[in-house]
C-alpha cells in the first residue's frame, strides 16, 4: 500500500467507484419505473454521439465528446418516444429499433471518416480503459497534499467526480418529486409535480452519468452499473432510502473488488497479466446480484409464499 498503489491503483479504483455510484443512483429510479433498459439504449448511442462530436469539433477532447454523447442520448430518447407514439409500438421494440440504428450509423461514420489516426475505435468504446488512468506523478500518499502532483491527476477522475457530485445533489434536491413521481404518477400530477419533466430529467441525468462513466469503463459495462447494484438493493429492503444506500454500497464493493480481482486475480491463479477491470467490475456486480436473488430478504414478490416462489 505504498507509492506504487497510489500511482497505479488509487485513481482507477476511485474512478471505478465514482462511476458505479453515479450510475447506480439514477439506476434505482429507472428500475422502479420499469425503464431499466433506457440505460442500455443510452450506452449504445454514446458511440455515434462521440463520433459526430469528433467530426464536428475535429479534436479528441473531453468536453465536445461529452456534449455529443449527451446530445445523442437525448436524441435517442426523443426518437424512442416519437416512434412509440407514431407507430403505436411497444417501448421495448421502439428502443431496439432506435439504438441499434444509431449504433450502426455510428460505426459507419467512424469507418468512413478519417478517424483511424486518432485513438477512437469501437472496441475501445465498448470496453473502456480503466487500467490506463494512472497517476504517474504520484510518489506516495503524501502526493495527495502536493498541488503539483494533484494537478496531474487524470482528467477523467475530475470529470467523473464532478458528475457524481451533480448526480448526488440532483437526487437530494429532487428527492421528494422523484419518489412520488416514481411510485404514483397520478398522485404526483394531482400535487402539481411535473412528472413528465421529472421522468425526462431522470433520463438526461442517467445519460450524463453514463457518458462520464463510459470514458472509464466502456459503454456496455455501464449497463451493468445501472442495473445490477440497484436491482440487488431492491431485493434487500422495502424502503427507498435504504435501497439507495444499499445500491451505493454494492456499487462501491463491485468497483473495488472488481478492480482488485482484475489486477491481482490472475496472479493468484498463476497468470501473469491482468484482465479487463471494467469487465471484472461488471462480473462482480453480477455476482452480488446473484447472491441477492438467492438470499436477499425481500427477494419474493409481495403475496407469494416462499414455497411458491421456488
Amino acid at each position: 500500500m505504498g507509492a506504487e498503489f497510489v500511482q497505479f491503483s488509487l485513481t482507477p479504483i476511485l474512478i471505478g467507484v465514482l462511476s458505479a455510484i453515479a450510475c447506480a443512483l439514477p439506476g434505482n429510479f429507472l428500475i422502479l419505473r420499469r425503464q431499466a433498459l433506457i440505460g442500455d439504449a443510452i450506452s449504445h448511442v454514446v458511440l455515434p454521439g462521440i463520433v459526430v462530436a469528433f467530426l464536428v469539433s475535429g479534436v479528441v477532447a473531453a468536453i465536445p465528446m461529452l456534449l455529443g454523447a449527451a446530445g445523442a442520448a437525448i436524441v435517442a430518447v426523443v426518437l424512442i418516444e416519437t416512434i412509440k407514439r407514431l407507430g403505436k409500438i411497444e417501448p421495448g421494440a421502439s428502443m431496439g429499433v432506435v439504438f441499434t440504428t444509431m449504433f450502426a450509423a455510428g460505426v459507419v461514420i467512424l469507418e468512413k471518416s478519417d478517424t483511424s489516426r486518432v485513438h477512437l475505435d469501437v472496441e475501445h468504446a465498448l470496453m473502456g480503459n480503466l487500467e490506463t488512468l494512472i497517476w504517474l506523478r504520484a510518489e506516495g500518499w503524501h502526493s495527495l497534499f502536493d498541488p503539483a502532483a494533484l494537478a496531474s491527476l487524470p482528467d477523467e477522475l475530475i470529470r467523473i467526480a464532478v458528475v457524481c457530485v451533480i448526480v448526488v445533489v440532483l437526487t437530494l434536491v429532487f428527492w421528494r418529486w422523484l419518489k412520488i413521481a416514481t411510485f404514483d404518477e397520478g398522485f404526483a400530477q394531482a400535487l402539481g409535480i411535473p412528472s413528465a419533466g421529472v421522468g425526462f430529467g431522470l433520463v438526461v441525468t442517467a445519460a450524463v452519468a453514463a457518458v462520464a462513466a463510459f470514458e472509464a469503463v466502456g459503454s456496455i459495462i455501464v449497463i451493468a452499473m445501472f442495473i445490477c447494484p440497484p436491482a440487488a438493493a431492491r431485493l434487500m429492503t422495502n424502503r427507498l432510502e435504504l435501497q439507495i444506500w444499499w445500491s451505493a454500497a454494492f456499487a462501491t464493493i463491485s468497483a473495488v473488488l472488481g478492480y482488485v480481482f482484475a489486477g491481482y486475480g490472475p496472479l493468484w491463479f498463476g497468470g501473469q497479466n491482468a484482465v479487463s477491470a471494467a469487465g471484472m467490475i461488471a462480473a462482480v456486480s453480477g455476482g452480488i446480484l446473484g447472491l441477492a436473488c438467492l438470499y436477499g430478504p425481500h427477494r419474493s414478490r409481495v403475496g407469494v409464499g416462499r414455497e411458491e416462489a421456488t
Partner: peptide, 23 residues
C-alpha cells in the same frame, strides 16, 4: 423467482455476461 421486472433481468444479464466476455 424474484420480484425484479423482466427489463431489470435483461439488463443485468446483458451487462454482466458481456463483462465476463470482455474479461
Amino acid at each position: 423467482r424474484t420480484r425484479l421486472a423482466e427489463d431489470a433481468a435483461i439488463g443485468a444479464v446483458l451487462g454482466v455476461f458481456f463483462g465476463v466476455g470482455i474479461v
